[in-house]
Design a protein around this nucleic acid. Structure first.
Lengths: 176, 176
DNA sequence: ACCTGAACACCGTTCAAGT
DNA sequence: ACCTGAACACCGTTCAAGT
């Protein structure tokens, strides 16, 4: 008579992601998550080891989503950089989970981290050192912007354009 | 007969800072903080409005400490940059509170934020755009390093040297 | 295998009561 | 003014018990 529950790791991940998207990580409790899935909190532990594992699932799904978008963004490093910012601004509550939470590497789809890092290195011109500096530049800009650390009257578009030019110059200098 | 308690906003700030330094923000609860001060948790609310205000106090004290150090570091932008990293690595649990937590501007010592931003802008050669890009570069490198996001075999000293060269080149280009 | 209610040891915060 | 115990509405997690 009653509808089958059909709770799964996938449905847990999807629901958790939606909660985080809508109201931030702070809104994700085992009780609210369970309620949204139509079960009670303790039942979650039949599908998942801990709240940390739920976060890890969201991390994997979001990193996959980001990685695909980054790889499929336009071919120039400018395209990649602008995509990075756009993805972060479109997913402000997911961004910190992907790029600030400790990576739960054991739970990530196999080779996913490598794949994403590979595309970033490629966008940086193949140098690991240059890729790390570039990633840090983008991450720093996004993080400070999301946290509202820049003055209200700061022209962030201009700041990004400046960073793009600097990164391209650094790439050239590094290759030379 | 018994010793005077002498709990004050200053002692609350100092004790909170010590807890955070030692065991991270996660270890700071109103109950543990109160216990360390020799009182009970509800009594804290006679000195402080909320846990957030405690965080704000720590934020102010830490920003002051950072700002002084940054201003007194060697005169070259290289000196400032290396100080930034050194301060972060020496205060890994305080760094996120100063540079990631929402700034509680109403509770900060007057003009403190301006003063620190001023020194950063000076180190960047006077340009606000260049200063923001530089700050973001340093913040990104520190954050990714503290979070262990770079591969274990990554040569971070080299990455920082690369970033320093890039920033100096960008500064020159921007001035030209 | 999957779900439940009850419980444990925590939170931040409020409040009436004491001095 | 400063401190207390008791309480409220939350946490994550465990566990015995049901199906």
């Amino acid at each position: 008579m009653s509808v089958r529950k059909m709770v799964s790791r996938k449905s847990i991940c999807d629901t958790a992601m939606q909660i985080i998207q809508d109201d931030g990580v702070g809104a994700l409790s085992m009780r609210t998550l369970a309620t949204k899935l139509g079960i009670k909190a303790p039942s979650l532990y039949d599908h998942v080891k801990s709240r940390d594992e739920v976060i890890a699932l969201v991390q994997g799904a979001s990193l996959l989503n980001f990685g695909d978008g980054f790889a499929n963004a336009g071919p120039t490093s400018r395209d990649k950089i602008l995509f990075y910012r756009a993805w972060a601004l479109a997913n402000p509550n997911l961004y910190p989970i992907v790029f600030q939470e400790k990576l739960h590497r054991d739970l990530l789809p196999d080779g996913l981290e490598q794949k994403v890092l590979g595309v970033v290195v490629a966008a940086a011109g193949g140098s690991h050192v240059q890729a790390r500096a570039m990633w840090a530049q983008l991450h720093g800009l996004v993080d400070l912007e999301l946290q509202g650390r820049f003055p209200n009257d700061a022209d962030l578009d201009l700041t990004w354009e400046h960073a793009i030019l600097s990164l391209e110059a650094a790439k050239k200098a590094h290759l030379a």
